[in-house]
Design a protein around this nucleic acid. Sequence first.
DNA 1: GTCGTTGCAAAGCCTTTGCAGGGAA
DNA 2: TTCCCTGCAAAGGCTTTGCAACGAC
Lengths: 123, 123
Amino acid sequence: MKRRTSQRTALENVFDNEDRPMGVNEILETAREFVGSLNQATVYRNLKVMVEKGILLQISDPVLGTLYERTGKAHHHHFHCRVCDRVFELPGCGLGKNKAVPKGYVTEGHEIFLFGVCPSCSG
Amino acid sequence: MKRRTSQRTALENVFDNEDRPMGVNEILETAREFVGSLNQATVYRNLKVMVEKGILLQISDPVLGTLYERTGKAHHHHFHCRVCDRVFELPGCGLGKNKAVPKGYVTEGHEIFLFGVCPSCSG
DNA sequence: GTCGTTGCAAAGCCTTTGCAGGGAA
DNA sequence: TTCCCTGCAAAGGCTTTGCAACGAC
């Protein structure tokens, strides 16, 4: 990732415009609004690089699979709407101090996924 | 799922002997100890049926992908050991009452994944 | 004997990779 | 001009599906 190309700028634009984890397909289609010829392989390659560089975070949705989001945000978790199948970021962390695990387990991190209906779909 | 075959018995044995979510490959290899000729496609087909019947639960590990576990257990969450890459079930739920979500979100369920080192690997 | 099940192979996704041409510096 | 990056197509995993043979009942 040493050269600035229109493809990479397109990908960054996508994440600038949508503050929400997205899958490869959505990223690809949105990015093509900027660079019509954008290829899937290029997207995969760049997403990988951006994750390694620490610009993006890879998360795993139980239904949608791999999603990508910008790093640098406050600790948060994810909400999957079963109606529109979009994932949203929820501020804060509902994990109580009783997240205590059984003796012998050493916890280093956690990921929480909530399921339900989002405001747009329940309103 | 109307006929009892040796293949299905083998699959049930696997879940009887290991109280831990497992991936297709591990399930297949373990089940082959009972039925050597067991085919991958058969495993996929039967796991699917068992999930539909409510015997098994399908969960999604961020690293390992799809895993299967027996249903009917108390509410619990999962712990992924980064050393041995096995997943364990942790009793109870550390999600506090402040799992309150922003206005407009309707929560119907949740899934928690903890990451770290398990007793066998940290001891 | 029926017809649900299995094994095998082919096909379908999603993701990665090899390669030659194209473009940033 | 250099050589990083892209597009294209082929190849790799994982999972599903079509089909003929098998076997539970």
